[in-house]
Design a protein around this nucleic acid. Structure first.
Length: 427
RNA sequence: GGCGCUAUGGUGCAACGGUUAGCACGCGGCCCUUUCAAGGCCGAAAUGCGGGUUCGAUUCCCGCUAGCGCUACCA
C-alpha cells in the first residue's frame, strides 16, 4: 500500500477509484472498458485512479502477463496515479482481517474439505443443514435452498485439518446498497451463502490465501476507494462485500456496475469471437484514441447523438448517469469506422507519429522524411489518409510510392495521383 | 434448479407519458471520381409477447418469453 489507512470514512474529499485486473490473461476489451470508465470518472472528477493487481490465485496467476496488461493500458492512454500494487504482497493483511472477523464472531473456522464444496453444484449432499428447516414441498423437486456448513455452529473441533475461514452471514436480515447504475438494491441474507474469506492453507506452511471477496474489500477500505466501478458480473456478489465492509467497521463505497460486452452471438465475449485483447488491436493498427472512443460508447452515451468524442471531450462529458444497464455487442465494423474517422480527422501533426511508428515497424521508414523531406512527407500522408482504414495501410502505399529510387518533387504532390504507376497498382 | 439483471431496426446509442420513434455503423442505390477510398444524397430496417394504469404509453405496473449474470477454498 502506498498510503497508510487513514480512516474508514467514505467519500470525503476527492473520489478515489481503481482498476483491479487479474493477471490470468491479456487485457481484454471488457477489462479495458472497465478501466476506461474508471479513468474517465477519475479525470472528470479530478480524483485519483489507482491500479491494483489481483493475483491471489496462485494456480491461474501468470506474473509475466502483468506487464502486458500495463502496456495495454498505456497504449489506450490510461495513466494511473497510484500503483500498481500487488495483492500477493499483502497476504498478511488479509489473514489479519480474517482472524479479526473470527475473533469478533463475524466469521468462523470451517474444517470441511475443499472438495466438499468445489465443483459448483457437485456436492450438495454431505452434512449441511438445510436453511429454515427443510420445508417439504409436496412438489416433487423442491426449490434448493442455500445450505450452511455445520462448522458455522459447531465449536472449532481441533481437527488435523487446516481450516478455511468463512463469513458468518447475519441471519435473519436484509442487505442493501446503492448502485449508481442499477439503483437501490436489496437482498435477503438468507440467500447469501457463508462464503469463504480465507482459503485453507495448502500442504505447505504458506500464508493462507484470501478469496477475491476478502482481498478486494480489505484493499478498497485501506486504499480509501470511494467508487467501485466494475463489470456487472460482480453485481450479484456485491451484497457479500457490503456485509464485509460492515463487519470490518467500514462504510461501503458507491458501487457502479457496468454492463458486459458480448460477442456477435450475444454470449460473453471470448476468444472464439476473434480478437479480444486490446494488444491485438494495437498490433492490427488501430489508433488508440479511436479505440478508446469506440469503447467509451459501448455502454455509455453522453446523452445525445454525439459520437465523435476526443479524449478531452469524453472526460468532460463522462458521467455514471449515462451508463447503460444493457449488455452490448462488440461490433468490429463500427470500431473500424471509428478508426477511419480518426485517420481522416486527426490534425496531421498528430497522425504523423503513428504513421512513422508504423513505417518503422515495417522497415520502410526513411529518416529524411522527418528531416529534409518532412514537409513533403506530411503532404503525402495527408493525401494518402483518406484511403486508409488501419495503420498498416500506410505501409502498403509506402511500398508502392515511397521506397525505391523514385524521387518526388515536393512541389508536385498534387500530381501524386497522376503517377503512371498508380493505375497499374490499383488495376 | 434457485436468485437477480436486462429487453428500441442486424449492431451501438437517443427519445426518461404526447415526436411522422432520432443519430451512427453495417446494408442497398445514386452522385463525385480515369481506379480505390474518403465525401454528399436517397432508401430498406426497431419499440419481444400479453395484460393493465392513463385522455394518451417505447417510457409506469404485472405476467410470459428470451438473453445474460451470480449461485467456487476463480476473479
Amino acid at each position: 500500500m502506498t498510503e497508510p489507512p487513514k480512516s474508514s470514512e467514505p467519500v470525503a474529499g476527492t473520489p478515489r477509484v481503481r482498476f483491479a485486473p487479474s493477471p490470468t490473461g491479456y487485457l481484454h476489451v471488457g477489462g479495458a472498458r472497465t478501466a476506461l470508465f474508471n479513468w474517465l470518472f477519475a479525470r472528470h472528477e479530478r480524483g485519483t485512479f489507482i491500479l491494483r493487481v489481483e493475483d491471489t490465485d496462485v494456480e491461474r496467476n501468470r506474473p509475466e502477463l502483468v506487464e502486458g496488461i500495463l502496456d495495454g493500458l498505456r497504449w489506450l492512454g490510461l495513466d494511473w496515479d497510484e500503483g500498481p500494487c500487488f495483492q500477493s504482497q499483502r497476504l498478511p493483511s488479509y489473514r489479519t482481517a480474517a482472524e479479526a472477523l473470527v475473533a469478533s464472531g463475524a466469521a468462523y473456522l470451517c474444517y470441511c474439505p475443499p472438495e466438499k464444496y468445489g465443483g459448483g453444484d457437485a456436492a450438495e449432499e454431505a452434512g449441511e443443514v438445510e436453511e429454515g428447516k427443510e420445508e417439504k414441498d409436496k412438489k416433487s423437486a423442491g426449490p434448493r435452498r442455500i445450505t450452511r456448513c455445520r462448522c458455522r455452529e459447531s465449536q472449532p473441533s481441533s481437527s488435523t485439518q487446516k481450516p478455511a475461514i468463512r463469513f458468518r452471514v447475519p441471519l435473519p436480515g436484509t442487505t442493501q446498497f446503492e448502485d449508481a447504475v442499477f439503483g437501490e438494491r436489496e437482498v435477503a441474507n438468507e440467500e447469501i451463502e457463508d462464503f469463504v474469506l480465507l482459503r485453507s492453507p495448502k500442504t505447505g506452511s504458506d500464508v493462507p490465501l484470501p478469496t477475491y471477496q476478502l482481498a478486494a474489500v480489505v484493499d478498497d477500505i485501506e486504499m480509501r476507494i470511494t467508487h467501485v466501478i466494475r463489470g456487472a458480473d460482480h453485481l450479484s456478489n456485491t451484497p457479500k462485500q457490503v456485509l464485509l465492509y460492515r463487519a470490518l467497521g467500514a462504510t461501503p463505497p458507491v458501487f457502479a456496475h457496468v454492463p458486459l460486452i458480448l460477442g456477435a452471438d450475444r454470449t460473453r465475449l471470448s476468444k472464439r469471437h476473434g480478437a479480444t485483447s486490446v494488444g491485438s488491436y494495437a498490433d492490427e493498427g488501430f489508433l488508440p484514441e479511436a479505440f478508446r472512443n469506440f469503447l467509451g460508447l459501448l455502454g455509455w452515451s453522453p446523452g445525445n447523438d454525439t459520437e465523435f468524442l476526443r479524449s478531452e471531450e469524453m472526460i468532460r462529458r463522462f458521467s455514471l448517469v449515462g451508463v447503460s444497464r444493457t449488455n452490448a455487442v462488440f461490433d468490429r465494423a463500427k470500431l473500424e469506422w471509428f478508426n477511419t474517422q480518426y485517420l481522416q480527422k486527426l490534425p496531421i501533426e498528430e497522425l504523423l507519429p503513428h504513421v512513422q511508428a508504423q513505417l518503422t515497424r515495417a522497415g520502410l521508414w526513411q529518416t529524411e522524411w522527418a528531416g529534409a523531406k518532412s514537409d513533403w512527407f506530411a503532404r503525402a500522408i495527408d493525401l494518402l489518409r483518406p484511403r486508409t482504414r488501419l495503420l498498416p495501410d500506410f505501409s502498403t502505399w509506402a511500398r508502392a510510392f515511397f521506397s525505391d529510387t523514385f524521387d518526388y518533387d515536393p512541389a508536385a504532390c498534387e500530381k501524386f495521383w497522376k503517377d503512371e504507376r498508380l493505375p497499374a497498382l490499383l488495376g
